[in-house]
């Protein structure tokens, strides 16, 4: 489904270090992969490459057999959904909830009626979808998104990213900026939407427990490569403690111990 072959990227600002170093990754349809790694391991860089924010120096990215290595970012968005860490990035703060949803309802330009305003039936449909989130946003259709809380904005972004079922969903620490209770709620919503539509998903997390509790495959990245890849029965045997030990062993000295220990708590 997703096939990444020897992907390499060296940024001009850090010429001595490859951000992605001949990375290979094959993801099957319906897989939910959690991605671990210390800061600077290349997790977000991998996501940016898949989303098309930059083009790699070497290697290929194939999605359902189609080579998308040099396809523009906005064109890939037709089949790749994204939720980023920063709640400010996924929505337009100056526009209302309904207006944000209207832009996300149909991906691309062709599906949109360029010269029509939001209709009543569209609003009713938005309200139904928002009610399912259980965050009280169904009454805030006409409010600017800038007035929503971070959790509400992330839930809204998740809804927008999956409005039209994407082939691939990229979640880049999308609950990291939220308070624990809200993060838990957004994670539940994420789990529900992925299971309901059986969406192939990659999720970056710093939370070791989450990396095992969610999804059906876990990979660990270090220095622009995948250094550990567990799934199935092998993964079921893992505990956060065991994962932590492996993490130290494989990700070397660069791991910030305090941060990882914190994630265990």
């Amino acid at each position: 489904m997703l096939d990444i072959r020897s992907l390499t990227k060296i940024f001009a600002t850090q010429p001595q270090k490859a951000a992605l170093n001949g990375l290979n990754l094959q993801v099957q349809k319906g897989e939910f992969v959690t991605v671990l790694g210390s800061n600077g391991a290349g997790k977000s860089t991998l996501f940016h490459a898949i989303a098309g924010e930059f083009f790699p120096d070497e290697g290929q990215i194939l999605l359902e057999g189609k080579n998308i290595t040099f396809q523009a970012a906005h064109q890939r968005s037709r089949f790749i959904g994204r939720v980023m860490q920063d709640p400010m990035k996924g929505t337009v703060p100056a526009m209302t909830v309904a207006e944000n949803l209207a832009l996300a309802e149909h991906k691309g330009i062709k599906g949109k009626k360029l010269f029509s305003s939001i209709t009543k039936s569209q609003k009713e449909q938005f309200q139904e979808k928002l009610a399912l989130l259980g965050l009280g946003m169904e009454d805030k259709l006409e409010q600017p998104v800038g007035l929503l809380s971070g959790g509400q904005r992330q839930a809204l972004t998740l809804l927008m990213a999956t409005f039209q079922q994407p082939k691939l969903l990229l979640l880049d620490e999308h609950t990291a900026a939220l308070d624990p209770a809200t993060a838990e709620k957004v994670m539940q919503l994420t789990q529900a939407v992925i299971e309901q539509h059986n969406i192939t998903t990659l999720m970056i997390t710093h939370n070791l427990a989450h990396s095992l509790a969610f999804g059906n495959r876990t990979i660990l990245m270090d220095k622009g490569k995948i250094v550990m890849d567990v799934q199935g029965d092998q993964r079921k045997a893992y505990t956060p403690q065991l994962l932590m030990e492996q993490f130290h062993q494989l990700a070397g000295e660069e791991t910030t111990t305090s941060q990882q220990s914190f994630a265990l708590l």
Partner: peptide, 10 residues
């Protein structure tokens, strides 16, 4: 206001 969001909307 947020070109990144527009990119995610294809």
């Amino acid at each position: 206001n947020n070109p990144t969001m527009l990119v995610t909307c294809a």
